[in-house]
Write a protein that binds this DNA or RNA. Structure first.
Length: 434
RNA sequence: GCCCGGGUAGUGUAGUGGCCCAUCAUGGAGCCCUGUCGAGGCUUCGACUCGGGUUCGAAUCCCGACCUGGGCGCCA
């Protein structure tokens, strides 16, 4: 008999036979009647064993089965108001497919909380919990939504190498690896390659892929392996790609709110779709805004300073929703960022959630001489960017783009405390397995 | 990398020098119980991260190692 998910059964199917497979979530033995709660990916089903109406052999199996064992149950569906979901299964056959050892490394019913570190050590079991599973069902759904969005907007999906010869932007620390007998690095960003694709004439491209950062940051919002959602688009200015970004964010929120009701309720959260367009403030306005607060912490700020975490938090408090900080000082952005008419300022932006930065992007330099002089000015050697710079020599359109952190998007949308909760098997300074 | 916390049964915790061969919950084993849904009741099992030191006496104080939580810096 074909097996079904628990969610595929309802009280109207009373009298039919059904086969369910899943994990033993709980057993409640009341003496004359025993309830076994079976859990699968989609939910729960109650298997009811009244002592007088069920074979002694089945009671024997249930008596000695352990929690979290995998079983197959075949039985009759019975409508009963007293059962959760309005139905229960009266079993004819119960097979133990895999016996679970004891004690369990953590409690999948969630009655006893476990710390994140404990949960990650036994992630296979942590992921059995419906509210943890819900995060990853939503993650999968968000990726679907993003894919559809890009397809509708005429973007081509690309895949760029993750093993690279040179640093992309010079600033951040990279993981060195051995590539045969040469030194190589794990890619920190697809930036250079997606720009080369503009020279290739692909016009609009997107990629969702891992990025690797060797920074020794140890916080609830950093990962050493993260997922970056990247686009690059020709003949677009930075306003154009900002509009794409805010529309994408709004679309993701809207779709998740509409299509992931069960998952949001498993997580016990509600989400608000942000209004577009998002508020835009320039970097200069942000500095002035901070200085106008009474907080002495910000009175020393001068134009050109980076915005610290407490600056971001204060702006988040003042603005209270998604916003862009635009027109950053040219020197605080990467070399490929297009300067404005006033060369001190760049055509760049960061997308902010009140809790943290989600994305950054800009209009790019497409003039080769200017690009070389900017690389120079940043103290980098243009010779090591030869493969990149060649693409600017033979006709490259003006273009703009951005990169968005998938885990940060999920974390802020779902109100997760720690970014590690948005990754199946997170990689950070301390954690390399599982 | 810098600053500040913390490591007690499988899990989550109480205990800050003797009251502790260590509290409570959950869990395991066993018994009772025919409508549970955090089932209930009874019995029982299971722990002070490691090494060194102070002290008559250390889970408790000190030092080191390892592990770990938070903040900052940097970033997405």
């Amino acid at each position: 008999m074909e097996r079904r998910f628990t969610a595929e059964i309802d009280p109207s199917m009373a009298g039919e036979k059904a086969t369910l497979v899943g994990w033993v979530h709980e057993i409640r033995d009341l003496g004359g009647i025993t309830f076994l709660i079976l859990r699968d990916r989609e939910g729960f089903a109650q298997v009811t064993l009244p002592k007088k109406r069920v074979e002694a052999e089945l009671l024997g199996i249930v008596k000695h089965i352990s929690r979290e064992s995998v079983i197959r149950v075949t039985g009759t569906i019975k409508e009963d108001e007293r059962a959760p979901g309005g139905y229960e299964i009266l079993p004819h056959e119960i097979r133990v497919l895999s016996y679970a050892d004891s004690p369990l490394p953590l409690d999948p019913t969630g009655k006893v909380k476990a710390e994140l570190d404990t949960r990650l050590d036994s992630r296979f079991m942590d992921l059995r919990r419906p509210e943890v599973l819900a995060i990853f069902k939503i993650r999968s759904y968000v990726l679907d939504t993003i894919r559809n969005f890009f397809k509708e907007h005429g973007f081509i999906e690309i895949n760029t190498p993750k093993i690279v010869a040179t640093a992309t932007e010079g600033g951040t620390a990279l993981f060195p690896i051995t590539y045969f007998n040469r030194e190589a690095f794990l890619s920190q960003s697809p930036q250079l390659f997606k720009q080369i694709m503009m020279s290739a004439g692909f016009d609009r491209v997107w990629e969702i892929a891992p990025i690797f950062r060797a920074e020794e940051h140890d916080t609830t919002r950093h990962l050493n392996e993260a997922t970056s959602i990247d686009i690059e688009a020709s003949f677009m200015d930075y306003e154009d790609v900002m509009r794409i970004l805010e529309d994408l964010i709004a679309r993701v929120y809207e779709s998740v709110k509409r299509e992931c009701e069960k998952e949001l309720s498993d997580l016990d959260i509600r989400i608000e779709v942000p209004d577009t367009p998002f508020r835009r403030i320039t970097y200069t306005e942000a500095i002035d805004l901070l200085k106008s607060t009474d907080n002495p912490e910000f009175s020393e700020l001068v134009w050109g300073d980076d915005l610290s975490a407490s600056c971001e938090h204060e702006l988040g408090r003042l603005i209270g929703e998604h916003y862009f900080i635009t027109d950053w000082p040219t020197d605080s952005k990467p070399y490929y960022t297009q300067p404005a008419e006033n060369p001190e300022i760049s055509l760049s932006f960061d997308l902010m959630h009140p809790r943290m930065e989600l994305a950054s992007g800009s209009e790019r330099i497409h003039d080769l001489d200017l690009l070389i002089s900017r690389i120079d000015a940043m103290g980098l050697n243009p010779d090591s960017f030869e493969f990149y710079l060649r693409a600017f020599k033979f006709g490259i359109p003006p273009h703009s783009g951005w990169g968005l952190g998938l885990e940060r998007l999920l974390m802020t949308m779902l109100g997760l405390e720690n970014i590690r909760e948005a990754v199946l098997f997170p990689r950070d300074m301390r954690r390399l397995s599982p």
